[in-house]
């Protein structure tokens, strides 16, 4: 029993004092973050605060250069590990704007993701995406179709830790519930009646963890997240209940976050002028 109690405390991802540069410019100045097995975290923050950078650096994209600090995944240092090795360890990412790859079919990509041992057809059907299987990857996909394609790939890949960059943006109302449901399933958070096991037990046995960027917070209508963070100007400003944070942001904007972390308000005006 002691072991299963401990399990909920097992660290999935630990980020310590992380600094990241993109094209010679420091975007993340100091980030500490811990995500345990079974937990889903949500990341808020104004445009340009470094949310995507944090996800990309965690996944290991070479353009996101780590200049300080370290990243541990399941206890192993991955700070200098190439992308594909991080993927092999169980990290998966949904892309905001994935490239089109001509001549590579959606079906083929799913076989790559699932290493060929997954039922591609039925997986695609569950996302109402089977008509796209013989299309070139991302070729002419709409915003919402890209989201479904990305989640479908993650479904085949089945990573232990998911990095989702605004999974709800560009998705029409009809599909947002579907997307929410799929993410719930990917993170083992669906509430299903299970013979023999209580909800508490199931929760304890949950392995998957995730970090989700959301602007609108709509995804929280479909998914229970455990912890919320606000990223402001390259630093994590706040940690707390995701719904409470969302409520504050909705009512006060990010001004309150600026106050919380004692930043100069010019941070926000700078971001606003970018938009």
């Amino acid at each position: 029993m002691a072991e299963s109690l401990n399990k909920g405390e097992t660290k999935m991802l630990s980020i310590e004092n992380l600094r990241v540069e993109v094209e010679g410019k420091e975007i993340l100045h100091h980030v500490d973050l811990e995500i345990n097995q079974g937990e889903t975290h949500v990341l808020f923050g104004p445009n340009g605060s470094g949310k995507t950078t944090l996800l990309m650096a965690t996944m290991g994209f070479p353009d996101y250069q780590i200049t300080g600090g370290k990243i541990l995944f399941k206890g192993e240092a991955i700070t200098n590990m190439p992308l594909n090795e991080r993927a092999a360890l169980g990290i998966g990412l949904s892309f905001q704007r994935p490239p089109t790859i001509k001549g590579v079919k959606m079906r083929q990509m799913l076989e790559i993701c699932g290493k060929g041992d997954k039922n591609v057809e039925s997986m695609a059907q569950s996302l109402d995406f089977d008509e796209f299987l013989d299309r070139d990857l991302n070729d002419g996909f709409s915003g919402g179709e890209i989201k479904r394609s990305e989640l479908l790939q993650l479904m085949a890949q089945d990573p232990d830790f998911l990095l989702l960059d605004e999974p709800e943006s560009g998705v029409d109302l009809e599909n947002i519930a579907l997307i929410g449901k799929v993410i719930e399933k990917l993170l083992e958070r669906e509430v299903e009646l299970h013979k023999g096991k209580s909800h508490k037990e199931l929760k304890r046995e949950r392995n998957k963890a995730g970090l989700i960027i959301t602007h609108t917070g709509y995804i929280l209508d479909y998914l229970d997240a455990d912890i919320g963070h606000v990223l402001m100007d390259g630093e994590l400003a706040c940690i707390g209940n995701p719904r409470e944070i969302l409520k504050t942001i909705k009512e006060q904007g990010y001004n309150e976050c600026v106050r919380c972390c004692g930043l100069n308000t010019s941070v926000l005006s700078k971001e606003k002028s970018k938009e």
Partner: peptide, 11 residues
């Protein structure tokens, strides 16, 4: 960008 996309999927 295309190479990295596929690498993120494990290749």
């Amino acid at each position: 960008e295309e190479v990295e996309y596929l690498m993120a999927r494990g290749l």
